[in-house]
């Protein structure tokens, strides 16, 4: 089995020698562990949400009154699409030494991420302004804003990271370090999609299900 197949998303490090591959494997393994820790972060907030969305309404509006499905649905599709576009970028990285394709797919991914964040921002805005449901209103809303906002912050961070990587591609080309960072970003991005699956199911779908 070749080394590149062992690296999750798969990576072609070009002519780099075995030591680089070993380092790459360590790097990616460490990043996976970080992501596991990050998953626990969301799990713990989600558990808190499970309590607060039932017991923490404080006579304010609950999930059924506040949430609608249209925007979360579009947001879900946006993230899903961005996962696929990042997959395409990863394929370009692995099989073609084609910087333009890679950059274009990454730009598409970043754009989808930004639209997602913008929509989420709009959701937050309308909750606070139109529905009079700011996080300070009840325990439920506090946890809702923390949970969804934490995911949003992750997406923003990932987008900034992508920007930095685009600059590095421009400056250093596709050297092994940069390739590895793109690989790790792609794992991060896919993982944010996994988290979002939990959020749209347990926050939005479960909130409005009758």
């Amino acid at each position: 089995m070749s080394h590149s197949n062992r690296l999750h998303g798969g990576l072609n490090l070009g002519q780099a020698h075995a030591e680089t591959h070993r380092q790459a494997e360590t790097m990616v393994f460490g990043f996976w562990i970080f992501l596991m820790s990050d998953l626990v972060l969301f799990a713990v907030i989600l558990a808190t949400y499970a309590d607060a969305s039932v017991h923490g309404l404080a006579d304010g509006p609950g999930p059924a009154e506040l949430f609608e499905l249209r925007n979360p649905f579009i947001e879900t599709l946006l993230l899903l699409a961005s996962s696929v576009t990042f997959g395409m970028a990863a394929l370009h990285l692995k099989y073609q030494d084609d910087r333009r394709g890679l950059v274009l797919w990454m730009l598409a991914t970043g754009a989808l991420g930004l639209v997602f964040v913008a929509m989420e921002g709009w959701d937050f805005y309308s909750l606070v302004v139109h529905d009079d449901a700011p996080p300070q209103r009840s325990g439920f809303l506090s946890v809702f804003f923390l949970l969804v906002g934490m995911h949003g912050l992750h997406v923003i961070a990932a987008t900034v990271w992508m920007l930095v990587l685009l600059i590095q591609i421009g400056r250093f080309g596709l050297m092994p370090d940069v390739k590895l960072r793109i690989l790790r970003l792609s794992i991060f991005w896919h993982m944010l999609d996994v988290v979002w699956v939990a959020i749209f199911t347990f926050v939005y779908l479960s909130g409005v299900a009758r």
Partner: peptide, 21 residues
């Protein structure tokens, strides 16, 4: 972090009223 949000931004994760737990 939740305690900090309660203290700095008036959230209600752990407050006595307003649905904190």
């Amino acid at each position: 972090l939740m305690l900090a949000l309660d203290r700095y931004a008036g959230f209600h994760f752990f407050t006595a009223g307003s649905g904190g737990n």
